[in-house]
């Protein structure tokens, strides 16, 4: 894998708080990578450092094939979480302005604007003032303006999380198309979005990357036998879940409670099943459902981001 962009030991502190605490990664050319993690994990800060809006406290960002201190902004297309535009401009005027800022001549800027507006489905709305656009339309305009200089890398901050289901679908489909022609890095706190689009995943927590790799690779590497137990919400069952949480031993490797049950990672499925069933019978736990199988990506994600 030939890396397009490498981030080395990125650190960003805000008044003593290390929002990003030593993140390193490489994005392969032509890949689609997701920064996945809960809110406040440092995803936005990382992305804003890549876009050049924040200066890293420590560490460096390097673009392959460019000298160390050159302007990487010319090769990055950036879309913030909820982009704001000049409401008094029309979508087409904004696109032409963005093109001119990236060094296009007026005629080229006009042509690129029309091409990209058509591409994101805004050809009809191009002459309307942006103040009248819906959230989904603004997001698509944001995507179009990020593409105006044919960037090698597209950096998107939570591109779909502020949208309604329809807008979200539209943008996801657009991204699927775009990933065929350019390298993409985007952040999200929604696992299915990452799974749907990405080749590579970096799970971020408390400013650090805790899991990193290609999607099949992560599935394989973290695949482990799991027993999931859901219980009724009576006192004895809740008490048992609470007592069992975090307690390992025997065939049980870890125990992670969730909303209405507990998830055990185990070393030996049969032994663990016998042990847990007997224990639950003894304790009078009202089992609603028990499931034995192998961990999904969601389990990996939940385990990685919970304490």
């Amino acid at each position: 894998m030939k890396p397009l962009l490498t981030a080395e030991k990125l650190v960003k502190s805000f008044g003593g708080v290390r929002a990003v605490d030593g993140i390193s990664f490489a994005i392969g050319e032509g890949r689609c990578a997701a920064l996945l993690g809960p809110n406040g994990a440092g995803k936005t800060t990382t992305i804003r450092m890549l876009a050049g809006l924040l200066r890293p406290t420590e560490g460096r960002i390097a673009f392959t094939g460019l000298p160390e201190r050159s302007d990487i902004r010319a090769h990055i297309g950036y879309l913030p979480q909820s982009p704001s535009f000049y409401g008094w401009m029309s979508g087409r005027e904004y696109m032409m302005y963005a093109g001119r800022l990236c060094g296009l001549r007026a005629a080229d800027a006009k042509r690129t604007a029309d091409e990209l507006l058509a591409r994101v489905g805004l050809a009809g709305a191009g002459r309307r003032r942006i103040a009248t656009y819906s959230g989904g339309m603004k997001q698509r305009l944001g995507l179009a303006q990020a593409l105006v200089h044919r960037p090698k890398l597209l950096v998107l901050d939570e591109p779909v999380s502020a949208l309604d289901p329809v807008g979200r679908r539209e943008v996801l489909e657009l991204l699927k198309e775009l990933k065929r022609e350019t390298t993409i890095l985007f952040s999200t706190h929604v696992l299915p979005d990452a799974e749907e689009l990405c080749d590579d995943i970096m799970i971020v927590r408390d400013g650090r990357i805790v899991v990193q790799g290609s999607l099949p690779d992560i599935r394989e590497r973290y695949r482990e036998p799991v027993i999931t137990v859901r219980t009724e919400r009576d006192e004895a069952s809740l008490e048992w879940v609470k007592r069992r949480a975090g307690k390992a031993g025997g065939p049980v490797v870890s125990a992670l409670p969730f909303e209405d049950g507990i998830r055990f990672a185990v070393s030996d499925l049969d032994a663990a099943r016998r042990l847990l069933l007997r224990e639950m019978a003894d304790e009078g736990v009202k089992v609603a459902r028990i499931e034995a199988g192998y961990s999904t990506l969601e389990d990996v994600f939940m385990k990685a981001v919970s304490t």
């Binding site: 050049g52 010319a74 913030p80 704001s84 535009f85 000049y86 200089h149």
Partner: peptide, 13 residues
């Protein structure tokens, strides 16, 4: 404050 500047200043300007 509105974020319009961010979208401009990430361009090579």
């Amino acid at each position: 404050n509105t974020g319009t500047g961010a979208l401009i200043l990430v361009k090579p300007v």
